[in-house]
Design a protein around this nucleic acid. Structure first.
Lengths: 215, 215
DNA sequence: GTCTATAGAGCGATAGAC
DNA sequence: GTCTATCGCTCTATAGAC
C-alpha cells in the first residue's frame, strides 16, 4: 500500500489537470482571503489549504493580486447569476408580488453569504475603494445589482434601498460573527432574530455546520 | 531665519508633549489604517503622515496591534457618545417622534463617517471577526449600539433593523467611493440619492472637500 | 504539472545615542 | 522626547530541476 519511504514527509502531490487545480486554488483562496483580508493573506496559506506548494500558486495566477481579482470576480458572478435566475422565474401577479420576489432574492443572498469566503471577499472589495482595480470592480458590481433590481425586477426606489440595506446589515452581523456569542449575551441572538427573522434558521444552520467543520 | 545647514534634509522634529504627539499619531493612524487596512498599513506610513520616525510610533504604542485597537476604540467612543447625546436631548412627543429621532441619529452618523478614517476603521473591525481581540470589540460595540436604540431611544425592533441596515448601506456606498464615478455613470448618483435622500448634500459636501484636499 | 531553493524587498521591533 | 541604525523575520516572485 505504501511508498518505500516510511517518513511523515509531504507525499508527492497528485498530478491533476491545470483547470481542476485552478478551481482548487480559487476555493482555497476564497477562504483565506476572506479570513485574513487581501494584505493579511499569504500565498503560502492559500497553498497549504489547497495542498500544493507556494510557488505553484503564484505560477498559476501570476501575482497575488490577480488571484484575488479572480476570487472576487467569481463571487460577483455567482451573486449576479443567482439573482438573475430568480428574477427570471415565472411569478404570479398580485399585491404582494414585489414582497415575494424580495423575500426570494433575500433568501438567495443569505444562501450565498453563508459561504464565508464569498461574504468576506465581497466585503474586502467594499473597503478597497482606494485601490484603482479592486475599487472599480466593486463599484461596477454594486451598480449592476442596482440596475437589475430597478430594471429587471422592477423595484421602486424605496424597495431597492430597503433590500440593499438589509443585505449590508446581513453582511455585517455575519462578518462580526455575532452567533459566536449567543451564549454569552442574549442580546446577540435578539439582534440576529430581529434582523434575519424567518431567515434565521438558514443562517444558524450554516453557522453550526461551519463550527462542526472547524472541530 | 534658517539653521546653518542649507540642505533639504528632514528638519529636526519639534519637541512636543507625549500626550499631544499621541493624538497626532492616532489621527494619522486612522487615515492610514482606513485606506490600507490593518495588515496593509505599515507603521512607517503612519509615521510619515504624523511627521515623525517609524520607531517612535512603535515606542509610543508598543505594537502595531495596540495602535489599531486604540484607533478603533476612539471611533466607537465617538459614535456612542454622539448617539447618546442626541438621545438625551429633550424632544416633543408626537406621532413622528421616533421618525424625527431616527433622522437626527442618522444625520449624526453620516456626519461621523464623513471622516473616512473612522468609516474604514469601523469596517475593518467588522471584517476582523476571526481576530479574537478586534472581533470581540466589534461585537461588543455593535451590541452596545443595539441596546442604546432599544433601551434608551425606545425604538421598536423593526425601526432598529431599518436604522442599522440603512447605516450599513451608507457605509458601503461611501467605502466603495460611489461619488467618484458620478460623471462616468449617472446611475451612481441615482443610487446615492435613493439611499441618502435628504442627507446627500451633507455627504457630497464632505466628498468634494476631501477631493479638494487630495489635490 | 509540480517541487525545492533562494533571491530580493519590506516590515515590525529593539538598542542605544542625544 | 526623538532619532539613526539595524536585526531578524516574513513574504512574493523567480530559476531551474524533475
Amino acid at each position: 500500500m505504501n511508498e518505500t519511504s516510511g517518513t511523515a514527509a509531504a507525499q508527492p502531490t497528485e498530478r491533476i489537470p491545470a483547470a481542476e487545480r485552478r478551481e482548487q486554488i480559487l476555493a482555497a483562496a476564497s477562504v483565506v482571503f476572506g479570513e485574513r483580508g487581501y494584505s493579511g493573506a499569504t500565498t503560502d496559506q492559500v497553498a497549504k489549504v489547497a495542498g500544493i506548494s507556494q510557488p505553484y500558486v503564484v505560477r498559476m495566477f501570476g501575482t497575488k493580486e490577480n488571484l484575488f481579482l479572480e476570487v472576487l470576480a467569481r463571487a460577483l458572478e455567482r451573486l449576479v447569476a443567482g439573482f438573475r435566475q430568480i428574477i427570471a422565474e415565472p411569478r404570479e401577479h398580485g399585491d404582494d408580488e414585489m414582497e415575494l420576489l424580495a423575500a426570494r432574492l433575500g433568501g438567495a443572498y443569505v444562501d450565498l453569504i453563508e459561504d464565508r469566503g464569498i461574504l468576506l471577499s465581497l466585503m474586502q472589495a467594499f473597503i478597497s475603494g482606494h485601490n484603482p482595480v479592486v475599487g472599480a470592480k466593486a463599484r461596477a458590481g454594486f451598480l449592476e445589482i442596482y440596475r437589475m433590481l430597478r430594471d429587471e425586477a422592477g423595484f421602486p426606489p424605496d424597495a431597492i434601498r430597503g433590500f440593499l440595506a438589509d443585505g449590508m446589515l446581513f453582511n455585517t452581523l455575519l462578518a462580526i460573527r455575532l452567533p459566536d456569542i449567543f451564549d454569552e449575551d442574549p442580546d446577540a441572538e435578539e439582534l440576529m432574530r430581529c434582523t434575519f427573522r424567518g431567515k434565521l434558521d438558514l443562517v444558524l444552520g450554516a453557522t453550526a455546520a461551519e463550527a462542526a467543520a472547524d472541530a
